[in-house]
């Protein structure tokens, strides 16, 4: 199955609304679940993996999770289509690059996605715009309830939900809050933040999760502990740490405005002109310039561009998105030209 026409704009989670959205891009909750009576994915042969994929697919389709639910098989997809889903945060890199029968169900305006046969049989994720961990947990908890009406998940009364990797055992819940921290990055305060975060047993990751580099000053804060604390306790810890980082970033932004305004404005307006004038631009440079511009808009320095447009550009300028919208594989050089032209066009529309 191939993907339908490239959707216009972004998923719900990038629409740029919600609490603290100038700094917190999105809140994500992910649950790992495995079918009871089966081995974990890595130990299964192709036939077993096919059976698991078929079973979960039929349940997911019939479980009333959302009217717009579509199940995509990943095996028949080409790499551009898989990368496109990774860029939209609907599947992981590992899921895109794995082999064997596997798929992903997507619904609720891309807020809900269920990866099937990733490292665990099911990886359910719910993604919302802004800082909304409790609401996101409520939403995913309902999905989990609906699925567990029809599927028996591997569970031990002492260890909780059993997962392929023992670091996920227990709640099998991973929260990820994506934050935009340009001011802390510029003023070299991030190391301090990371140190404090790791003391709280939380992890900091790049834009596309584990093992990825920071790009455009985006960082994901996640919990590491999954056993010995309830979902509510884990949410409370992450929420409070994220709120502290938000306050810190705001304070530094304010300090930049009052103490270093020319430098700050120079950086923002240079980014603005570069994006409006560039004819060839890499993905990395685009991210970095869009990041400065995003901060400029949020601080009221730049007034004629909306956050929604910038969020869309962050996504549409990614390699697989560019290639998908042109329906073919495109060389890096060609992409850099296309990217520059797309950015100029979108910023001129504003």
């Amino acid at each position: 199955m191939t993907l339908p026409e490239t959707p216009k704009g972004t998923g719900e989670w990038l629409r740029g609304e919600g609490p603290e959205v100038d700094i917190v891009i999105s809140s994500r909750v992910r649950l790992a679940r495995n079918l009871s009576g089966y081995r974990f994915r890595n130990s299964c042969d192709r036939e077993e993996n096919r059976r698991i994929n078929d079973t979960v697919r039929s349940v997911v389709i019939s479980a009333n999770l959302g009217e717009d639910l579509i199940y995509y098989e990943l095996e028949p997809m080409n790499m551009i289509e898989r990368d496109y889903l990774v860029e939209r945060h609907l599947i992981s890199k590992e899921h895109a690059e794995a082999e064997g029968p596997r798929g992903v169900a997507i619904c609720s305006g891309e807020a809900l996605s269920i990866m099937v046969n990733e490292e665990d049989h099911l990886r359910i994720q719910y993604l919302q715009s802004g800082l909304k961990l409790s609401e996101t947990w409520d939403a995913i908890n309902r999905v989990d309830d609906l699925l567990s009406e029809r599927l028996d998940f591997a569970f031990s009364p002492t260890l909780g939900y059993l997962t392929a990797c023992p670091t996920n055992v227990g709640t099998a819940m991973r929260l990820s809050v994506m934050m935009h921290l340009p001011a802390l990055e510029w003023t070299k305060q991030l190391r301090k933040v990371f140190k404090a975060v790791s003391k709280m047993n939380l992890a900091v990751r790049g834009l596309y999760g584990e093992g990825t580099r920071a790009s455009g000053d985006f960082y994901q804060i996640s919990n590491q502990v999954t056993l010995g604390k309830s979902e509510g306790e884990i949410i409370a810890i992450v929420d409070s740490v994220v709120r502290q980082i938000v306050r810190y970033e705001r304070k530094v932004r304010q300090a930049l405005l009052t103490q270093n305004r020319p430098n700050l404005e120079d950086r923002i307006w240079r980014a603005h002109s570069m994006l409006k004038g560039a004819r060839i631009i890499s993905s990395e440079e685009t991210m970095s310039l869009l990041s400065s511009l995003r901060m400029g808009v949020n601080m009221g320095v730049v007034k004629d561009i909306s956050i929604k447009t910038l969020n869309e550009l962050f996504l549409e300028t990614q390699p697989a998105h560019l290639q998908k919208s042109h329906g073919r594989e495109i060389s890096v050089r060609e992409r850099d030209v296309m990217r520059a032209s797309l950015v100029r066009k979108r910023l001129a529309e504003n």
């Binding site: 028996d152 569970f155 260890l159 709640t171 819940m173 590491q224 502990v225 604390k229």
Partner: peptide, 26 residues
């Protein structure tokens, strides 16, 4: 190993409704 990387050895979060039946069958 789990003890050192986690915050305890007892799950205190959500459980499926039919936990007993699932466990026995397993």
């Amino acid at each position: 190993m789990i003890e050192r990387v986690q915050s305890g050895l007892r799950h205190v979060g959500k459980a499926p409704r039919d936990v007993g039946r699932i466990y026995e069958r397993e």
